[in-house]
């Protein structure tokens, strides 16, 4: 039966690539004695897929993994058994069973939320001056940016480079305020300073990387983008209830996006209270 789990990826696990995270889960399920379904043939493998690979170096509290199980385990028991096998930097925070006909999280992914932090070692660097370090300059920069009609970035592929306007894929860029996720305390304790919040189009058709947006903001302010200064943290991933197959929604779309966290999406979609809509 189809199931989905949500997990965090923090600390040193930021340096483990997504294929290795998959291997990590496969071995963890075996240690936990979870009966994951296997493909057939001479080299059977566990049936599972990620919603969206997380770039190396990024942290997250909103990663999703779909899997297929041969047994039904109650949610609490599943979380307990799997988390016993996790190291301290990956933990499974949610688990749900999906309708059999529901699409994979990879197929329904429509948007992601990100937080951008300033790394502690950078706020201390005296030689680094940036509009990010001053609250007012930061606020003005964000406002100016969101008023722009076009945001052109140089998109590099293996074969070519071309200009692409990504403005319509940026749903939201704002200063990081209250809603900064459940791991906020871990970050502030370690000296990270929250700077920006972003909500960006994601998925298999168009996928906007947060680094690109951050770079565009810096460029607009006439500043070199210091990638090492920032910790990008994925907060959540969403499906879009109004999206049809193959469509890409933008902030101008009609009807508007109806974003639902993937942890709510594939179940029987009960639009109960407590589901947060940003649009």
């Amino acid at each position: 039966m189809k199931a989905r789990l949500k997990f965090t990826k923090m600390g040193s696990m930021r340096f483990i690539g997504h294929l290795d995270v998959m291997r990590y889960f496969q071995k963890a399920f075996r240690r936990a004695g979870i009966q994951v379904s296997y493909s057939k043939g001479f080299s059977p493998h566990q049936i599972m897929s990620f919603a969206s690979p997380l770039g190396l170096g990024l942290s997250s509290e909103g990663e999703y993994l779909d899997l297929s199980l041969d047994e039904e385990i109650p949610k609490e028991e599943f979380l307990q058994r799997v988390n016993t096998q996790m190291n301290e930097e990956i933990s499974v925070t949610d688990f749900l069973y999906l309708e059999e006909e529901s699409k994979s999280s990879m197929a329904v992914l429509a948007a992601c939320d990100y937080l951008v932090y300033l790394k502690p070692e950078w706020s201390l660097k005296p030689e680094w001056t940036s509009f990010f370090s001053e609250e007012e300059k930061r606020r003005n920069a964000v406002e100016r940016f969101m008023k722009k009609e076009r945001v052109e970035i140089l998109k590099k592929t293996k074969r070519s480079e071309k200009l692409m306007d990504i403005r319509e894929y940026i749903y939201l860029l704002s200063e990081a305020e209250e809603d900064t996720g459940s791991l906020q305390a871990d970050f502030t304790d370690a000296g990270y300073e929250p700077l920006l919040f972003m909500q960006l189009t994601a998925g298999s058709v168009v996928n906007i990387k947060p680094e690109l947006v951050l770079e565009a903001v810096c460029m607009d302010e006439g500043e070199e983008y210091e990638s090492a200064a920032f910790q990008i943290h994925r907060l959540e991933m969403y499906g879009d209830l109004n999206m049809k197959k193959g469509e890409v929604h933008t902030w101008k779309s009609d009807p508007v996006c109806e974003l639902v966290p993937l942890s709510e999406y594939g179940k029987v979609v009960k639009l109960s209270n407590g589901i947060k809509f940003r649009y």
Partner: peptide, 11 residues
């Protein structure tokens, strides 16, 4: 979080 000998930048 575990303290690492190498900085994020180097890693």
């Amino acid at each position: 979080m575990r303290k690492l000998a190498l900085s994020d930048e180097i890693l």
